[in-house]
Write a protein that binds this DNA or RNA. Sequence first.
DNA 1: AACCATAGGTGTACGCTGTACGCCTGTCAA
DNA 2: TTGACAGGCGTACAGCGTACACCTATGGTT
Lengths: 229, 229
Amino acid sequence: MTRPTETPRRTPLSTERVLRAAVALADTIGIEALSMRRLSQELGVVPMALYKHVAHKEELLDGMVDAVVGEIDPPRSGAQGMTAVRGRILSARRVLSRHPWASRVIESRTAPTPALLAYMDSMIGMFRADGYSVDLTHHAMHALGSRLLGFSQELFDQSPDVDPGVREAGLRAMATAYPHVVEIAVRADHDGRSVVGQGCDDQFEFEFSLDLLLDGFERLRARGWRSTG
Amino acid sequence: MTRPTETPRRTPLSTERVLRAAVALADTIGIEALSMRRLSQELGVVPMALYKHVAHKEELLDGMVDAVVGEIDPPRSGAQGMTAVRGRILSARRVLSRHPWASRVIESRTAPTPALLAYMDSMIGMFRADGYSVDLTHHAMHALGSRLLGFSQELFDQSPDVDPGVREAGLRAMATAYPHVVEIAVRADHDGRSVVGQGCDDQFEFEFSLDLLLDGFERLRARGWRSTG
DNA sequence: AACCATAGGTGTACGCTGTACGCCTGTCAA
DNA sequence: TTGACAGGCGTACAGCGTACACCTATGGTT
């Protein structure tokens, strides 16, 4: 009688459930705020309970990476060649934009996770199936690098400075010290593609550089280029 | 008499001295081991003493970035055009290889530091002086992204697996799950450029992709390309 | 020469982190 | 009925960044 059987009987944890909760939590509160304690609290459990399902936080992060990479679309059955490659990379980019923390976490891994290896393997396969040599494919993978996953590789995410007035004042202040930077920033403000004061169109810049690289690969392939000379 | 004047009289701290010590310490023990406490101990001072010279750790990191970026060679007075750009980027890359932690720290900054802005400004200037339009220069800067500073942008630094036997065993184990990855890894092992079992030549890969991009820019410029169509 | 403001080093303390270790309990096989 | 075991709990510890109060030697002013 002291212990009624009608206790809520929480559904038990599992690695799966922990990972899903971690991804969701990182999406909402950001990766830097994701601590083991915060996550355990989200799951209605004491912190140490998590350690029955992941060995340590690094393993948790590995699992989160795999979960996210697993969201990338498989290669579309119809498409072939560079357009298929292009499409898949853009799919990866969409996934990453849903989980903005993921790129940072992936870059912090020291060894590739299984899902990442699988993704790369299938990417390489697409090049090979399109007639690319092992040699050229190899260099292409290096050249794409983290862009394979849709990373922007920008030096700085332009801050959403919201107020255009503030932004313009800042630019004016920098004009003497960094005239070229300002010239370009102003230009980006006024061109047709982007909302004024908002900086530039990430997606356009990404596709611009991606296509530059893919075109370069095609050209080398057509030329029968080999790295060993 | 109780207090002899011959106390060692430690040379006083200064922001400069703190930053230099921090850079040196990060070089030797790695950035993740660099704590305010560890740094203060290196300077023979109590942790809180540092806060008289930097507002908080983020400011310390900003200062370290500026110190490192300041090491990049200025543009060589003789050189012009894309070869000058290329040379400067390779100089940045050499600096970064002396401070392997720097790329990670730079990527973690939210706002550009003064030295970074100055570097970018001068880079943009080199494109403009070479006849590039504001428009094309703008997109080129985005396409280069962190490569401007010599970042590799690799998805994973191939681990120095040292023992070739171990590496080969690992590859054999992965062969069924990731055949394409293994094909490329094996190929990289056996080609003439790289020490066997050592993976690939970072520097070659970097220059390969850099040249691919620079060539692409030149081609667009020659063609009078404009993004707004 | 006396004074006192100030720059800069010290000491203590707080809240946060990841996680080692031992315990306790409910479930299921023998 | 028993006893192993999976899995959640509680306590504790070392390390982190840093707020805040304090102390002291220095240098300019009177």
